[in-house]
Amino acid sequence: MSGLDRRAVVAELLHEPADCPGGPLLVVTGLGSTTYDAGAAGDRPENFYLWGAMGGAAMIGLGVALAQPERRVLVLTGDGEALMGMGALSTVAARAPNNLSMVVMDNGQFGETGHQASHTSLGTDLAAVAAACGWKTTMTVTTMADIATLRQRLRHEVIFAVVKISTAEVPRFLPPRDAAALSVRFRAALGIPAD
């Protein structure tokens, strides 16, 4: 089966999250497997996991990035979630924050709901879409060696990357899902006083 191991990819991308300008990397994941991947890589307060709000990951990331211009933000999502919020690729590029990168874990299918083929295996190239929307640096990554490079780059540059991953199922890992609790700890990690 072709494609990278998703857990190995995310473990590498999120390795040493404190090794990042301005403070530990802030991560917003998309509904579905990227939430499990990020949790499996190590639950931390600077992770905000979507368990719903499909299509919203990129825009949530933009809201964080605008509010925290000194910090680096990574939106880590899947092809299905990115497709649902495809307009946001245009909106984020139009606003052009200098502290937000996005990684789409692309297995070409809706893995959570029965492995139906997604649009990325039916002709849509999300890296090309992002480039057409105005993202200056886009790439498609297919090797672990390039993932190691991507880990460094997305903490210093504005990158839109599609990572081609295997369709193989991995053990489900369930990070916390209380959105209010996740919000409180995320804000606390940023030093925002509780209301």
Partner: peptide
Amino acid sequence: MHVVVCTTEEEGVALAAGAHLGGQRA
């Protein structure tokens, strides 16, 4: 003021959620 023109309204709801996470009001 950070101003964001959206392609569809739900983007604005998600932006506001991110603003809240980052300590701003939208």
